[in-house]
Design a protein around this nucleic acid. Structure first.
Lengths: 122, 122
DNA sequence: ATCAACGCGCAACCTTTTGTTGCATGAACT
DNA sequence: AGTTCATGCAACAAAAGGTTGCGCGTTGAT
C-alpha cells in the first residue's frame, strides 16, 4: 500500500524556514510577518510568502487586527501533518525491519546449507 | 529550544518524488535511474538528479555494475531521518497539547470553526 | 567482429519556488 | 495636521525541479 500522503501538506512543512515559522508561532501563540521576520534570517516579504503557502494548505489562518495581520497555527491541520510524518516514518521503519529480518534469515540459511552445497558440487 | 534538525536531510525527504523513490527502493531492494523512472511520472534525468541529491545527504549509495548504476537505501541514514521526523512531530504535538490545555482551562466553547477548508482549487 | 540496443552522463533550456529591493497605501500615535 | 509603522504589490535574481537532445561506453545478437 502506498502511504496516501498529502503532498501539499508535506511540502509545506518540508521547507526549513516554514518549519521554523511554525515553531515560532507555536511558541508565541501567534505572530505577524514582521515579528517573525525579525527572528528569522529572511526578509519580511519572504515570510509573507511563506505565510501565504501555509495559509493555502490550512496550516495557519490570519485575522486582521487594526493595521496588523496576525497568524495563528491551525491545530487540527498541524495534527494532520504530524500524523502523516509519523505514518511515513512508520512505513519506512517497518520496511527496513522486514529487509533486516530477511537478511538475517538468509544468513541462517547460508550457514545451514554450507555443507550440503559442498556435497552438491561434485 | 529549536528542534536541532538536519535541514539537508529533511529537505531531501521533503520532496514527493524523492519520497516515492525511497519507497520504491525499499520495496525492491535496489534500483537504477531508468527502472525508477518507469514507475514515476518523471523522466530518467529528473530521477538521476534526485538520486544525486539523496546520495549527497547519504540516504542512498550507488554501485556500478556493468553499464548499470544501482542505488540502494542506506538504512542507517534513513533511520536517522525517521528519528528526525518523529522528533519534530513530537515537539509540535507537545506544544499543541500545552496550548490546548491552556485554552480549555480558559474557555470551553471552541468548536465552531473547525470545518472544512477543502475548496482550494486554483 | 560488427552493429544495434540499452543505460548513463552531460549540457541547454524552461517553469516554479524562494528570496531580494523598492514603492505605495492605510491605520495609529503624537 | 504629519509621521510612524505594518502591510501589499511589482519587478527582479537565484535556485530547484523538470524537460529535450546528444554522445559515449556496455551488452548482446547476428
Amino acid at each position: 500500500m502506498s502511504t496516501l500522503v498529502d503532498d501539499d501538506l508535506w511540502s509545506a512543512v518540508g521547507d526549513p524556514t516554514r518549519r521554523r515559522m511554525i515553531d515560532l508561532l507555536l511558541a508565541d501563540g501567534d505572530g505577524t510577518a514582521t515579528s517573525l521576520s525579525e527572528r528569522l534570517p529572511v526578509t519580511r516579504q519572504a515570510v509573507a510568502k511563506h505565510l501565504a503557502v501555509l495559509d493555502r494548505v490550512g496550516l495557519v489562518h490570519a485575522s486582521t487586527a487594526g493595521r496588523e495581520r496576525r497568524y495563528r497555527v491551525d491545530d487540527e491541520q498541524l495534527a494532520r501533518a504530524v500524523r502523516q510524518l509519523n505514518a511515513v516514518g512508520s512505513a519506512w521503519d517497518s520496511r527496513m525491519d522486514r529487509i533486516k529480518r530477511i537478511a538475517e534469515s538468509i544468513q541462517r540459511t547460508n550457514d545451514e546449507n554450507t555443507r550440503r552445497t559442498d556435497e552438491k558440487n561434485e
